[in-house]
Design a protein around this nucleic acid. Structure first.
Lengths: 127, 127, 127, 127
DNA sequence: GTGGTCTAGACCACA
DNA sequence: GTGGTCTAGACCACG
């Protein structure tokens, strides 16, 4: 999986890393149980500090996206969660996002169709 | 309109302010051309510094959500934009949001229905 | 002559007024000796404060663009100046302007040709 | 690069700073990718507040002149833009500038020759 | 009365 | 060590 960082972004590097890995998991590019690169390896590949990669991994672990085993390194969590409701935090984000879209002139059907397109790329689908 | 801040949030105060005002505009709680509180007034009401409020207003102005009239202070922009496409930035955010939802176990129809609910609250609707 | 103000501009109203009158004089839309509207009249037409118009007139007077006679109001100055050199202040502005143009990718010949076009509209030409 | 501020100028300090850096970039005194002084350093050198420098940097960043890298501070943007047309905003400024020059008695060839001189100092030239 | 600018100092997040 | 945020207060330009 290819990770690309923008050093001049508003988003901190560790968060960019976290976001891309989350998307990788959702799209199936990273399979459940798949091993992630070591902190050191990834840091070197990306030319960034190991602390930064470590912070991203800690965050992903804390959020339950990956599990970290001292012997085998980091792996994508086996999928378990099946909670049909969006977390309040995500719901709030979605509201803000839709607000901006609505003001800008995006109508609902256009928005919904875009959602469908994005959902279609996700491997983690629930019926 | 009621604005509430969480001082212990990760999100900077000025950004919380900006977000709530954007949502207020989208839901119609703040009508186009409506006058916003003065920088000083809002700062005092919220118990924060004027520069923090000023920063939020500058951001909103720069993004086109409000207009700052030297004579009468800040007002909600008259709605003009009617761009059916989501900006790349928002689209990226939406992708990340859906990725998280999908992993967590939210299925597409549930997500879409939530979007509908949120859209229903928006006054800024386009057919 | 038509004057239009943007209340949401960075440029103060009195300066916008001053700028438009200067351009009017240069293009010949306002002839030398031509009478300008009274402060009160112009303020009413534009829906702004008389103080604002007054400030613009004072500035124009101080810069020599107009003369103010208590009996007959403000008139465009008869053309007198014939100084072939740009004032240091304008030269500095020109340098900044060209710097921005150059960085943005405008080449010299394109810039020069634009200058020619603008000069062509000026009535105040010197051989 | 030497930066000098006039505290008694009409132009805000942060804008003076911005202007001088823009000119520095255009003349090549500041090369693409070159590191700018840190906010703190520059503030100390100039005897002004860090927030003032910060505001200048934010403005330059927003305008695309510099890039702010979380790791190493601010750097001059790698040159990319190659737009042969002047932005409407600059064109308007140019018109005002030429109007003032024309009234003052500067003729076109004199003006053009001054432009040439200024262009000659710019490193950011396009054929 | 409005926003715009600036200061002197502080604390925090990021890397 | 970097920039980002915030404060409490001040002064100024604009209208």
């Amino acid at each position: 999986m290819i990770l690309s960082l923008q050093v001049d972004s508003e988003t901190p590097l560790y968060e960019q890393l976290r976001n891309q890995i989350v998307i990788g998991i959702a799209t199936g590019e990273l399979a459940p149980q798949e091993k992630l690169p070591t902190v050191r390896q990834l840091a070197e590949d990306l030319g960034i500090n190991t602390m930064t990669v470590n912070k991203a991994y800690m965050l992903l672990k804390q959020e339950g996206y990956i599990v970290i085993d001292r012997r085998h390194g980091a792996k994508v969590s086996p999928r378990t969660s099946d909670n049909p409701d969006l977390s309040p935090r995500l719901e709030e984000q979605l509201q803000l996002l839709i607000a901006q879209a609505a003001i800008q002139g995006v109508n609902q059907s256009r928005f919904q169709s875009l959602c469908s397109q994005i959902f279609a790329k996700m491997a983690y689908r629930h019926p």
